[in-house]
Design a protein around this nucleic acid. Sequence first.
DNA 1: CAGTGGTCTAGACCACGGC
DNA 2: CCGTGGTCTAGACCACTGG
Lengths: 238, 238
Amino acid sequence: MLLYESIAENILEMINNEKLPHGYQLETLEELAEHYQTSKNTIVRALENLEARGFIYQVRGSGSFVRRKKRNYHLNLLSNQGYRNSLRKFSSTSKFVKKEIMMAPEYVRRELDVESDEKIIYIERIRYIGNQSRTLSLEKSYYRQKIIKDIPVEAIESSIFAYIQDELGVEIGFSDVYLKADKLSKYDANLLELDVGDPVLIVEEVYHTKTGEPFDYTELVYNYQESFLYAQSSTYQD
Amino acid sequence: MLLYESIAENILEMINNEKLPHGYQLETLEELAEHYQTSKNTIVRALENLEARGFIYQVRGSGSFVRRKKRNYHLNLLSNQGYRNSLRKFSSTSKFVKKEIMMAPEYVRRELDVESDEKIIYIERIRYIGNQSRTLSLEKSYYRQKIIKDIPVEAIESSIFAYIQDELGVEIGFSDVYLKADKLSKYDANLLELDVGDPVLIVEEVYHTKTGEPFDYTELVYNYQESFLYAQSSTYQD
DNA sequence: CAGTGGTCTAGACCACGGC
DNA sequence: CCGTGGTCTAGACCACTGG
């Protein structure tokens, strides 16, 4: 692990332990540089990292402060870990519904930027909160077989992203996310144990590897009664 | 404007002009440093800035590349400019509904972290696409009067954030955003010209100044037929 | 193994917040 | 006007990609 990353993790741990509460002012850059026996620039990097992830904010001329905690039981919309992190936040499980190999349909080709003869692994699964008592979401994913060789059912019923990263060694880079609300279709309503026409939150995600290749297009259909998402912006945005 | 920012803007302009198309490989860091007559580190800053804003991605050992364009007619969920930017993307207008001064109700106190006797400016407005033919959203905003002295109706009918920044000189920092889908209430359905029980996308936003003070809590109620949002993640996320 | 992005240093100087 | 974050430099060295 890199120096600035380990410093960031060290500070983050203190924030999460609530040793450093909301609003707390961190040591100054110079003090931290002294403390960690490194240069000021490296501290700047560490704090930038924490700022970009929404844990602190920095005010020129004043100091660096711990940012407020996010609401509990909300899912991070921009986490690049798919289902992986939500597993930790609240106990949840997945049920395998369907898996097939297909040629990329037109709307998937557009998102994944592939030719019509490229093979796609299509997977459908349902995510539950707790012990399959409450449905959280229905997930329809298209993976490029060229990059994601195969996904066993065991991975589908636990965490596909954990499998992709840990077993296949694919490194996740960045993603595009699109959002809308709509009325539930008959098929989706049935799987989510809701009524046709009920509201639904639809999230489309296109994931890319670290080298910029799109490898996964997923449509997430969220149960409106159970689904709460959050995101954070930092100081620099358009 | 800072050196690394002006370099970033310069490159961004070429991307937006499509002089640098999707997938295009930028010059190397050293070449750019030479080109702009600056140090490599400053170029690193400039490209980091573009990467964080989702315009490029960088691959160690390989190069820096122009990222794909976002879909048109989607609103940036994490823009810190409120309504300001969407004004440019597609013509839209606002209609003033209500404005009152009140003491902060409990749920607003919690979000804005204020005492119960602090004065709040409450504003309700409707946003339309085009010439008030299609409703886009209903906006319910709570501003701390301590920070936002007053908001004239003219600002409400154009852009409140433009007024806050340009006239009041308040600098926008970061924000927290929460999302869910729900069924439309009678009051909201009436204003949005939709039916009670129709789906709705609800976005709650808490905006902070650059110095970390929360100043605005807004609940956005989006017409599901017209509202499409997007967000982007960069390589570093949890 | 060449080419390219990323980290780290040490230090100068700048810009802003708040007393 | 002091204290604090932010920028910028020049250069050494490291780590990854891809032929």
